[in-house]
């Protein structure tokens, strides 16, 4: 269950909306931050904090791509392969992540360091190909640049 600080944070979120259910998406983000992913416990905690049925929490949570339903690596790589990135080589980068790090879309490296999620456009098409590592944007990617960037995420 959430500790007092988190409960307070969620109360604060609730106060921004005319009804408590609207706090669901932001609260799921909080739960994901606290638990690392949306485990049953995480979703139960949200249901309790907002006083909405757990089935409702689950129904909403599974609709959205950015909520994780399994534990992820320490760092989550979100690589875009939509058209602007694709025509500038994003798919070769997917292959590179596989050959160099053993990382497949939806998977996690054996040492638990990285998970890879394939994204639809992340709004960095002008500097494609692009990815987010956790919450940081990285663009103009090449194999070499990816190697350099990932060095910094231990």
């Amino acid at each position: 269950m959430f500790n007092d600080t988190v409960v307070k944070e969620i109360d604060d979120i609730k106060s921004r909306y005319p009804d408590r259910k609207s706090a669901l998406l932001p609260s799921l983000y909080v739960a994901q931050r606290e638990f690392g992913w949306l485990s049953s416990e995480a979703m139960e905690s949200v249901a309790r904090a907002l006083n909405v049925p757990e089935s409702v929490v689950r129904g909403t949570a599974t609709f959205y791509a950015m909520f994780r339903h399994a534990p992820a690596g320490r760092h989550v790589i979100q690589l875009c392969t939509n058209v602007s990135c694709m025509i500038l080589g994003a798919e070769q980068l997917v292959d590179f992540l596989k050959s160099k790090y053993g990382l497949t879309p939806g998977g996690t490296t054996e040492d638990g360091r990285f998970s890879l999620v394939i994204m639809e456009c992340i709004g960095a098409c002008g500097t494609a190909p692009a990815m987010l590592v956790d919450t940081d944007f990285h663009d103009n990617l090449s194999e070499k640049r990816i190697e350099e960037i990932l060095e910094k995420y231990k």
């Binding site: 939509n82 058209v83 602007s84 639809e120 456009c121 709004g123 960095a124 098409c125 002008g126």
Partner: peptide
């Protein structure tokens, strides 16, 4: 801003 190719609002 979800339409792929769009990064104008950013």
């Amino acid at each position: 801003e979800g339409e792929p190719g769009t990064f104008k609002d950013r």
